[in-house]
Computed example of a mutant assay.
Amino acid sequence: MTQGDGTGTRGGGSGLRERTRRAVRTELAELAVGMFAERGFEETTVEDIAAAAGLSKRSFFRYFPSKEDVVFGDVEEVAAGIAEAVRARPAGEPAWTCLRVVLREWEGRIHASQRELAGLRLIESTPALRARLHAKRDEMRTSIAAALRERPGADLDAFTADLLTAAAGAALDAASREWLRAGGTADRAALLDRAFAVLSPRV
């Protein structure tokens, strides 16, 4: 693995550096999840991951702030994208419909940010990762609830926005768990539609 710092200074140099950085992050995360699955999360150190990737420990921390974060990929970036998509939905669209449409569009990216089946199984079996996932999802829900209230023409109080966003998160979680139980063979989008239909409020 190369470190992918990027040295271009003209034209698309900045974009190239960012694409290279993302590619390295993805490769590093896939390597780490494989090592966690083989050796165990607690038994695998940052030094182990960095050595396997041909990086220094310092270089590892340039891509991820902690060992836990390597499992979650670009969760923060995905959360920001979802919030932006929520703000861009048509004025007057019911909040629940907005959440259903946006999360269905982003469902693939959400799962990719958790490294698919191996990553989800790892998270479910590792208390430290489950705790980090809950913390990240709390942050995501807060930003999405704020985006719901910021939509043009929105007339939502903070309580309702929080409640609807939490319900949407529960739908996403239930769909993910069912997909995991099915060994990754179920239709995730269909599961998400089913979950939203079951929870559908009259708002």
Score class of each variant (00 low, 15 high):
Gly108Gln: 11
Ile110Trp: 09
Ile110Ala: 08
Ile110Gly: 02
Arg115Gly: 00
Leu117Pro: 00
Leu117Ser: 03
Gly119Leu: 03
Leu120His: 04
Arg121Phe: 12
Leu122Gln: 01
Ser125Thr: 08
Thr126Ser: 09
Thr126Phe: 03
Pro127Leu: 07
Pro127Val: 05
Ala128Thr: 13
Ala128Cys: 08
Arg130Val: 08
Arg130Trp: 09
Leu133Val: 04
Leu133Gly: 02
Ala135Pro: 08
Lys136Glu: 10
Asp138Tyr: 15
Met140Ile: 06
Met140Thr: 06
Met140Val: 06
Arg141Trp: 15
Thr142Arg: 06
Ala146Pro: 00
Ala147Lys: 00
Ala147Leu: 03
Leu148Asn: 00
Arg149Ile: 09
Arg149Trp: 06
Pro152Val: 13
Pro152Trp: 10
Gly153Leu: 09
Gly153His: 05
Ala154Pro: 01
Asp155Trp: 12
Asp155Gly: 08
Asp155Arg: 12
Leu156Met: 07
Asp157Ala: 15
Ala158Val: 13
Ala158Trp: 06
Asp162Lys: 05
Leu163Arg: 03
Leu164Ala: 02
Ala167Val: 14
Ala168Asn: 07
Ala171Thr: 06
Leu172Cys: 04
Asp173Asn: 13
Arg177Gly: 06
Trp179Arg: 07
Leu180Phe: 05
Leu180Lys: 04
Ala182Pro: 02
Ala186His: 02
Arg188Trp: 04
Ala189Phe: 04
Ala190Cys: 14
Ala190Leu: 15
Leu191Asp: 02
Leu191Cys: 08
Leu191Lys: 01
Asp193His: 14
Arg194Cys: 03
Phe196Val: 05
Ala197Gly: 15
Ala197Pro: 11
